[in-house]
Amino acid sequence: MTLFDFIQRLLGRQKPSGTMAKERLQLVLAHDRSDLNPELLEQMRREILEVVQRYVEIDIEEGDVSLETEDRVTALVANLPIKRARPLPALVAAAAAVGMAQAPDPEAPQELAVPLAGEPTEDPSPTAADPD
């Protein structure tokens, strides 16, 4: 470690490289394991935000949709702060747009954690098709 690095760290401006390594690995492995590249993830993020916005007003700036991984299980985690629910007529229109008969509960959960199914590394069956 150089003196410059040391001062940066004392001032809290730079993380130790081991911590950076862990964070970078967790991110890249979440992508590796789910076979989603950053472009696809970005597209999915935009579409999820679009759908959610039909029902509730959300803070786009604060919104976050990302892949997280723990114990070899990858989850899609969306953290979308809700400003307020849309007025009822708008909700009915939105529901009609997606082919639903009734307006859904406006008190939608703020955080959704959806484990990604069908991840090849989690398949316990030895006879499963080769994922390569």
């Binding site: 390594a21 970078r24 690995l25 890249v28 492995l29 590796d32 394991r33 070899r72 090849p120 590394t121 989690e122 398949d123 316990p124 069956s125 030895p126 499963a128 080769d130 994922p131 390569d132």
Partner: peptide, 20 residues
């Protein structure tokens, strides 16, 4: 304890799991 080695190990672990 290096990023490249851990990433590759992760891939191999996935393949070993699918092979039982």
């Amino acid at each position: 304890p290096e990023v490249s080695a851990v990433r590759d190990a992760d891939r191999v672990i996935g393949l070993l799991n699918t092979r039982g």
